[in-house]
Write a protein that binds this DNA or RNA. Structure first.
Length: 918
RNA sequence: GCCUUGGUGGUGGAAUUGGUAGACACGCGGGACUUAAAAUCCCGUGGGCAGCAAUGUCCGUGCGGGUUCAAGUCCCGCCCGAGGUACCA
C-alpha cells in the first residue's frame, strides 16, 4: 500500500460529500467564524494554478478554525455577469447564460479536486434571478433614500418630501448633485415632473447627466476603476469623455465614513493607504472671487474656487477655469468668444489618453478679470484643460510661485509670478513645499505656512468671502452599462421620468433578445427585447458582487436578502482573502453598499470585512527553445551564443526543471516531429522568463495536471511552501518534488517495509513528544499569523526528526495527523481512518501543545567577544548571570579572545547570548 | 512626481522583531543499495585564505554613512525592482 494519492483523494471526496461534513447551520452554542474568498469570474480558460492560492490559504484557516471548535461559514459562488461572456456571445451567437453555465461547471470540477471545505449548499451566482432579485431590491432602496450629513446616515425619501412641504430645503444638510434652494411654497407649486426632478437631485441611486468614460469599442460606459491609462481594463480599448444621462450611486456621500471606517478594520497598511488615496480627503477652503465690474453684469455669480493653500492667495495672479466649467459662459467676452469656443472644441476632441500622452501647456484667455478678495487687484481669468471639471469647483486661483502646474502655465503665457515665501527661488521652478515664512502676504507676513493656512481660512470664514470646506476625490459611481449580460434595472419610465417597480414584482428577469448588440438606433441591447417596458441599461459588474457575502448567510431566503436571525449570528466576514486588484473597486463599493444597508437597519455591522488578507499574484514562468534560423535544429540555452537563433515559447508542461522533454516536444506540434537538438551535458536546457500567465505564452499551468501527477495535497502544500502568501511570485514547479517527498515520508511513518499500515501502541519517548509538541506550537503560531510557508517547513522538520527516531507510535501520529489535516486534508483523512477512528478528521479537535514537554534542562549559549560569536557553552536553564559570567571567563578558550585583558563588560541575555566586551 | 512595498547563496525563501545569518526545500557534487535504471537513504554545498586533517581565520544580507557591547533588523542619505496613483488645486 504505497501512498496512492489518487485513490485516497477520490475516496475522501466521496466520504465528505456523502456525510455532508462541510454543511454548516446556525449553532448558538458555538462561536461563529466567517471565512470568505473573493468569488471568481468563471472565464472560459478555466482555473489556473494562480486562482487556488488564496482559496488554499482560506481553506487551511477554515479547517483550522473548525478544529478549534468554531462554527465556520466558508462558502463559494460565482461572479457570473460580465463582459467576456457577452463579447463571446456577440462573436458566436451563443447565449451568455449557456457559456456561463458551462464555465461554472468546469470551475466546480476543478475546485472539487483540490479538497476545499466549501459549503456548496450555499452557492450563489450573481446571474441567477433569485440572487439578483436582491441586487435589484437594494437598488430600489437606494432610489428611495437620500443621505443626511447631520444624521450621518441614509434616510427615506418620504421624510424629505415632508420637510420640503413644511419648510423647503434651506435648513437641510444633505448630499446632492447640484446645490439648489427652494421654499415650501416653491416646492408646492412644482409640477409632478419638477418634483421628481428635484428629488432626483437627492436620491442615493439617481439619474444625472455626467461626464462618463465612454468606450466606443465596447459600446458602453465604464467606471473609473475599470479604466487604466485611458484604456478599458477589459480588452484595452480607448476610452473617451462624454456627457450622458446615467444611473449613479451617491458613493461620495459616504466618503467620510468610508475613510473613518478604515481605522477600525484589520487590513494591511498598504491597502488602507490605497483606499485613503482613492477617497482623497483634502481640507481647504472655498473662496469667492467677484468678477470685475468693467465686463460683468450685476447678476454674474461669484466664481468659487477650492484651495488647500488659502495662505498663498496673495500670490494668486490669475484664475483658471476647466473648459467644461459653468463659469465659462459668464466670463467669456464677445471679442474672445470665437477663440474660446475653438479651444473648448479642441479639448473635447482629445481623448483622456491623448491628454496623458502629450502634456503640453495649452489655454485661452476669456477676456474677463476677477478681483482677488485679499489684494483687491484685478486678475485675468483663463481657461485650460489642466483644471478638471470633476474636482473641486472646476475653477482655481492660480498661484504660480507655489504650484508647479500654475508655474508652467504662467511661464508659457508670461503671467506674473509673485513669491510668497522668504528666501525661495522661483526663477527656475515653483516652490511647492509647505514650509518657510510668509512674505508679500499682508497680514500673513511672518507666519509659518501651516499657521498662515489656518489664519487665512479663519479670515475667509469671518469675512464671508468663502467657507471652510473638505473636498473628496472619490466620485459617485456610474451605475449604467449599455450591455445585455447584467442585472436589469427595476425601473420603468412615465413622461420620461423613472419610477420604481413594485417590490412584489421583483425580480425583473433579463429578457431574451435576438442579438447581443445595440439596436440600429443606438439603444442598448435590451432595446431589442419584445414587450420590454423597463430601463434599457443594465447594472455594472460590481452590482452583484457588492453584497454577496450577506447572501451566503441565508442563500435560500425568498423574503429577504438575509434574515435578521442569520445576520445577527454570522454578522460580518471575519477573514476575507483576495487580490489587491479590487482595492479601489469592489472593496469600496462593497463597503459603501454595506453601510447603506446598515443605515437601513438591515445588517448589524457597519464594516463588512473585519480582516483582509491579500494573496500575491502568481505569474507565469515561460520557457524558451532556440531554433537555429532556417533549420529545424534547436540549441540548448547555454550554447545559443554560438548560433543565430530564434526564441520560441515552448509549453511549460513538457519542460521539467528547465530541461526539455525532447520526446514530448517532438509530439507537441507536427512541425517539430523531425526536430534535431544540440545538447549540453546530454540535456536540452531551456531559457526562461517571468511573464503574465496566458495561453499565448504557453505558460499556463492547469491545477488538474498537477493533481494527476502529484495529488491535491501536494499541490496545496506546494502553493503554500512557495513563499509568503502576500508576495507575488512566478509559478515554478521546481521543488514540487520536495513537497511530494515529504508526504510520502509522512505516509511511510505509518507503514512497514511490506507497505502495510502499522502503528505501535508503545508509549512515546520524551524526545518524540518533544518533537511533536514543538511542531504543534510552531504550526499553530504560523497559522494564526498566516505564515503557511514556515508551517509547512515545520512539518518537514518534524517528519525528518521522527523518521530518525523510527517513531511510529499511535499517540504521536494521531495528533500529527490532525495537525496536518488543514494543509493536506486527504492524506490526513485516510490515515485518520486507518488509525481506527469512525469519525472524520474534519471534526477532530486541534491538538494542544504541552509547554511542560518543551522545557529544556540545559541551554547552549553562544559566547561572543566584541559581538563576534566564538564558541558555545552548555549551561543549566536556571543558571544566573553571575555564574554564567564566571564560567565563561574560566573557560580556557576565552583566554585566546580576551588577549589577557580584563573584560570591560559582560552582557548576558537569558536564553539568548553572552557577549564579552574587551 | 507621490504613496505602498520589497532587495539575503546557483534558485524559492528562513531568521523567535536588535542577539549563532542562510532554517526548510530545490538544484548541484560525492557515496550506499541495484546487473542496470527508477525509487530510497547517507554525506557535502555562501565566498576567500591556511592546513593531510579535525580545525582556524578573514569577508559576506542592494550602495555609502551612523547609533549600539551587538545591526539583515534601528536612524540618515542614495541606487534598483514590483504594485497603486497622477494635471485632485
Amino acid at each position: 500500500m504505497e501512498y496512492n494519492f489518487l485513490r485516497i483523494e477520490e475516496k475522501c471526496r466521496k466520504l465528505w460529500e456523502e456525510n455532508g461534513v462541510y454543511k454548516v447551520e446556525i449553532d448558538p452554542d458555538k462561536p461563529k467564524y466567517y471565512v470568505l474568498d473573493m468569488f471568481p469570474y468563471p472565464s472560459g480558460a478555466g482555473l489556473h494554478v494562480g486562482h487556488p492560492l488564496g482559496y488554499i490559504a482560506s481553506d487551511i484557516y477554515s479547517r483550522y478554525k473548525r478544529l478549534k471548535g468554531f462554527n465556520v461559514l466558508h462558502p463559494m459562488g460565482y461572479d457570473a455577469f460580465g463582459l467576456p461572456a457577452e463579447q463571446y456571445a456577440i462573436q458566436t451567437g451563443q447565449h451568455p447564460e449557456i457559456t456561463t453555465r458551462q464555465n461554472i461547471a468546469r470551475y466546480r470540477e476543478q475546485l472539487d479536486k483540490l479538497g476545499f471545505s466549501f459549503d456548496w449548499s450555499r452557492e450563489v451566482r450573481t446571474c441567477d434571478p433569485e440572487y439578483y432579485k436582491w441586487t435589484q431590491w437594494a437598488f430600489l432602496q437606494m432610489f428611495d433614500s437620500y443621505y443626511c450629513y447631520d444624521a450621518r446616515q441614509a434616510r427615506p425619501i418620504a421624510e424629505l418630501i415632508e420637510v420640503f412641504e413644511a419648510e423647503g430645503n434651506a435648513r437641510l444638510n444633505i448630499a446632492c448633485t447640484e446645490e439648489i434652494s427652494f421654499t415650501a411654497d416653491e416646492w408646492k407649486s412644482k409640477s409632478e415632473i419638477e418634483r421628481q426632478e428635484t428629488l432626483m437631485n437627492y436620491r442615493i441611486a439617481y439619474l444625472a447627466d455626467t461626464m462618463v468614460n465612454w468606450c466606443p469599442a465596447l459600446g458602453t460606459v465604464l467606471a473609473n476603476d475599470e479604466v487604466k491609462d485611458g484604456l478599458s481594463e477589459r480588452g484595452g480599448y480607448p476610452v473617451e469623455q462624454r456627457k450622458m444621462r446615467q444611473w449613479c450611486l451617491r458613493v461620495s456621500a459616504y466618503a467620510e465614513r468610508l475613510l473613518k471606517g478604515l481605522d477600525e478594520i484589520d487590513w494591511t497598511d498598504a491597502l488602507k493607504e490605497t483606499q485613503r488615496n482613492w477617497i482623497g480627503r483634502s481640507e481647504g477652503a472655498e473662496i469667492y472671487f467677484k468678477q470685475a465690474k468693467k465686463n460683468a453684469s450685476e447678476e454674474n455669480a461669484d466664481i468659487v474656487v477650492f484651495t488647500t493653500r488659502a495662505d498663498t492667495i496673495f500670490g494668486a495672479t490669475f484664475m483658471v477655469l476647466a473648459p467644461e466649467s459653468e463659469y465659462v459662459d459668464q466670463t467669456v467676452t464677445t471679442d474672445r468668444k470665437a477663440e474660446v469656443e475653438a479651444y473648448i472644441d479642441a479639448t473635447k476632441r482629445r481623448t483622456e489618453r491623448e491628454r496623458i500622452a502629450d502634456r503640453k501647456v495649452t489655454g485661452v484667455f476669456t477676456g474677463s478679470y476677477a478681483i482677488n478678495p485679499f489684494t483687491d487687484t484685478e486678475i485675468p481669468i483663463w481657461i485650460s484643460d489642466y483644471v478638471l471639471a470633476g474636482y473641486g469647483t472646476g475653477a482655481i486661483m492660480a498661484v504660480p510661485a507655489h504650484d508647479s502646474r500654475d508655474y508652467a502655465f504662467a511661464k508659457h503665457f508670461d503671467l506674473p509670478i509673485v513669491p510668497l515665501i522668504e528666501g525661495c527661488d522661483v526663477s527656475e521652478e515653483s516652490f511647492d513645499a509647505k514650509e518657510g515664512i510668509m512674505v508679500n502676504s499682508g497680514f500673513l507676513n511672518g507666519l509659518t505656512v501651516p499657521q498662515a493656512i489656518a489664519k487665512a481660512k479663519e479670515y475667509v470664514a469671518e469675512k464671508e468671502i468663502g467657507r471652510i470646506k473638505v473636498n473628496y476625490r472619490l466620485r459617485d459611481a456610474i451605475f449604467s452599462r449599455q450591455r445585455y449580460w447584467g442585472e436589469p434595472f427595476p425601473i420603468y419610465y412615465k413622461d420620461e421620468m423613472p419610477y420604481p417597480v413594485a417590490l412584489n414584482d421583483l425580480p425583473i428577469e433579463l429578457p431574451e433578445v435576438d442579438k447581443f448588440l445595440p439596436t440600429e438606433t443606438g439603444e442598448p441591447p435590451l432595446g431589442r427585447a419584445k414587450n420590454w417596458k423597463y430601463e434599457l441599461n443594465t447594472m455594472p459588474g460590481f452590482a452583484g458582487s457588492s453584497a454577496y457575502y450577506l447572501r451566503y448567510m441565508d442563500p435560500h431566503n425568498s423574503n429577504e436578502l438575509v434574515s435578521s436571525e442569520a445576520n445577527k449570528y454570522w454578522r460580518d466576514v471575519d477573514l476575507y482573502v483576495g487580490g489587491t486588484e479590487h482595492a479601489t473597486g469592489h472593496l469600496i463599493y462593497s463597503r459603501f453598499w454595506n453601510k447603506f444597508l446598515y443605515d437601513l437597519g438591515k445588517v448589524v455591522c457597519d464594516e463588512p470585512f473585519r480582516k483582509l488578507v491579500n494573496q500575491g499574484m502568481i505569474q507565469g514562468r515561460s520557457n524558451f527553445v532556440y531554433r537555429v534560423k532556417g533549420t529545424n535544429t534547436f540549441v540548448s540555452h547555454g550554447l545559443i551564443d554560438k548560433y543565430d537563433t530564434t526564441e520560441i515559447h515552448v509549453d511549460v508542461n513538457i519542460v521539467h526543471n528547465d530541461v526539455l522533454d525532447v520526446k514530448q516536444f517532438r509530439n507537441w506540434r507536427p512541425e517539430y516531429e523531425t526536430a534535431e537538438f544540440i545538447l549540453e551535458d546530454g540535456e536540452y536546457k531551456c531559457g526562461w522568463a517571468v511573464e503574465k500567465m496566458s495561453k499565448s505564452m504557453h505558460n499556463v499551468v492547469n491545477p488538474d495536471d498537477i493533481v494527476v501527477t502529484y495529488g491535491a495535497d501536494t499541490l496545496r502544500l506546494y502553493e503554500m511552501f512557495l513563499g509568503p502568501l502576500e508576495q507575488s511570485k512566478p509559478w515554478d514547479t521546481k521543488g514540487i518534488d520536495g513537497v511530494h517527498r515529504f508526504l510520502r515520508k509522512f505516509w511511510r511513518l505509518f507503514h512497514n517495509d511490506e507497505h502495510e499500515f502499522y502503528v505501535s501502541d508503545e508509549e512515546a519517548s520524551p524526545l518524540e513528544l518533544k518533537i511533536l509538541h514543538k511542531t504543534i506550537k510552531k504550526v499553530e503560531a504560523d497559522i494564526e499569523s498566516f505564515s503557511f510557508n514556515t508551517a509547512v517547513s515545520a512539518f518537514m522538520i518534524c517528519v525528518n526528526e521522527l523518521g530518525e527516531q523510527k517513531c511510529n507510535k499511535r499517540a504521536i501520529l494521531q495528533e500529527l495527523t490532525v495537525l496536518l489535516s488543514p494543509f493536506a486534508p486527504h492524506i490526513a483523512e485516510e490515515l485518520w481512518g486507518l488509525l481506527g477512528s469512525d469519525t472524520s478528521v474534519v471534526t477532530a479537535e486541534f491538538p494542544k501543545y504541552d509547554p511542560a514537554l518543551l522545557v529544556e534542562n540545559s541551554f547552549e549559549y553562544p559566547v561572543s567577544f566584541n559581538g563576534k560569536m566564538r564558541f558555545k557553552m552548555e549551561f543549566p536553564m536556571d543558571a544566573d548571570s553571575a555564574s554564567i559570567e564566571k564560567a565563561v571567563l574560566a573557560n580556557p578558550q576565552s583566554k585566546k579572545y580576551t588577549e589577557g585583558k580584563d573584560p570591560k563588560k559582560i552582557i548576558v541575555v537569558k536564553g539568548k547570548i553572552v557577549n564579552v566586551v574587551i
